Lab assay of single mutants.
Amino acid sequence: LKGVVVAGGVLAGAVAVASFFLRNKRR
């Protein structure tokens, strides 16, 4: 169960970083 929580956190972080980079590329 702990691994699932960690994986979810990593996935959420990756999505946040990806969206951040996409926003920067638009400018």
Rank of each mutant, 00 (worst) to 15 (best):
V6Q: 06
R27S: 15
G3Q: 12
G8M: 02
R26I: 09
A12D: 01
V10M: 11
V6R: 12
A16Q: 07
R26F: 15
G9H: 02
V17A: 14
F20P: 00
K2I: 07
V15Q: 02
L22W: 05
V6A: 11
R23C: 09
G13Y: 02
A18D: 00
A14M: 05
S19Y: 09
G3L: 13
K25T: 14
F20K: 03
R23P: 01
S19M: 15
K25S: 13
G13Q: 09
L1G: 05
V4C: 09
L22N: 02
V6D: 02
V10N: 03
N24G: 11
V5A: 12
V15C: 10
A16L: 03
L1E: 02
N24F: 09
A14T: 07
F20H: 04
L22R: 05
G9W: 01
L22G: 02
R27G: 12
G8E: 04
R27I: 11
R27D: 06
V17E: 00
K25E: 05
K2G: 07
F21K: 02
L1V: 04
A12F: 13
L11W: 06
A12I: 04
K2T: 15
R27F: 00
V6E: 03
V15H: 05
V15I: 13
V5S: 06
V17M: 08
S19K: 13
F20R: 05
V17Y: 08
G3M: 15
L1F: 12
G8V: 06
V10K: 08
V5R: 07
V6L: 11
V17T: 03
G9R: 06
N24P: 03
R23W: 11
A18S: 03
L11I: 05
V5D: 01
V6H: 14
V5F: 08
A16I: 04
R26P: 11
F20S: 03
N24K: 09
A16V: 04
N24Q: 15
L11E: 00
V15S: 02
G8K: 01
A18I: 15
G8A: 07
V6K: 14
N24H: 15
K25V: 14
S19I: 14
V17W: 10
A16F: 09
A16M: 05
K25D: 08
K25Q: 08
K2H: 06
V6N: 04
K2A: 07
K2M: 08
V10E: 00
V6T: 05
V17P: 00
V17S: 01
G8D: 03
G8R: 03
V10I: 13
N24R: 12
V15T: 04
G9T: 10
V10F: 15
G9M: 14
V4Y: 15
R26K: 11
R23K: 05
V5Y: 00
V15L: 13
G13S: 06
V17N: 00
A12E: 03
L22T: 03
L11Y: 05
A12V: 09
V6F: 02
A18C: 09
S19F: 03
G9Y: 04
F21R: 05
V15A: 12
G8Y: 15
R23S: 07
A7V: 14
A7L: 11
L11V: 14
V4D: 02
K2D: 01
G3F: 12
K2C: 09
R26L: 08
G13C: 09
A14H: 05
A16S: 07
V4R: 13
A18M: 15
A18G: 03
S19P: 00
A18N: 00
G9I: 07
S19T: 07
L1T: 05
A18Y: 10
K25R: 13
L22D: 01
G13R: 10
A14V: 15
G3P: 12
F21S: 01
V15F: 05
F21I: 09
A14F: 09
F20T: 04
L11F: 15
A7S: 10
